[in-house]
Lab assay of single mutants.
Amino acid sequence: LPLEERVTHFRDMLLERGVSAFSTWEKELHKIVFDPRYLLLNSEERKQIFEQFVKTR
């Protein structure tokens, strides 16, 4: 999958899993780590997309 598509899937997962915009990566990790979409991005990309996600929520 192209990166753009993987990012979209990852963001959808964050929304569906009820990730809080007022929380930290560490506190929200347990909600998403077992979702197959979690593995679409490498660890650096995951954290970066998470940070963007919480800023725009």
Rank of each mutant, 00 (worst) to 15 (best):
L3E: 14
E28Y: 00
N42Q: 13
D12H: 07
K47T: 02
F22M: 07
K31R: 04
K47R: 13
R6N: 07
F34D: 15
E45A: 01
F22Q: 14
S20A: 08
P36I: 00
V54P: 01
P2S: 15
E5N: 15
K47S: 04
F10H: 13
E5V: 08
D12W: 12
T56H: 12
P2N: 15
V19D: 04
R6L: 04
R37V: 05
F10V: 00
R6K: 07
R11H: 11
R46M: 03
H30G: 06
L41N: 02
E45W: 07
S20L: 05
E4P: 03
L15N: 11
F50D: 04
F10G: 03
E45R: 07
T8P: 13
F10Y: 05
S43M: 12
D12L: 07
T56Q: 13
I32K: 01
K47I: 14
V33Q: 15
V7R: 14
V54L: 06
L40P: 03
P36K: 13
P2F: 13
E28I: 00
P2R: 15
T24M: 05
L14W: 12
H9C: 11
T56K: 12
R17I: 01
K55L: 12
V54M: 06
L41H: 06
I32N: 05
T8E: 07
L29W: 00
V54F: 12
H9D: 13
Q48L: 12
S20K: 05
E5G: 11
F53S: 03
V7A: 13
V33G: 02
H9M: 15
W25Q: 02
F50Y: 14
S43A: 13
R17H: 13
H9T: 07
L29K: 14
K31Y: 01
V19C: 04
E16P: 02
F22D: 15
P36W: 13
M13G: 01
L1I: 15
A21D: 02
L14C: 05
L40V: 01
M13K: 05
F10D: 01
F50K: 01
T8H: 08
L29G: 04
I49Q: 15
E44T: 12
E26S: 04
H9V: 10
H30K: 08
E4A: 08
F10P: 10
P2K: 15
Q48D: 15
D35G: 02
R6M: 10
R46K: 07
L1S: 12
E45H: 11
E26G: 04
T56W: 07
F34M: 12
T24S: 10
L41Y: 02
Y38F: 12
L15M: 06
W25C: 08
D12M: 14
E4F: 09
S20D: 11
G18R: 09
L41D: 00
I32S: 00
R57G: 15
R17G: 00
R46S: 04
R46V: 07
K31D: 10
Q48S: 12
V33I: 14
R17Y: 13
R17W: 02
V19I: 06
D12Y: 12
E44F: 11
E28K: 05
T24R: 03
L14I: 08
Y38A: 01
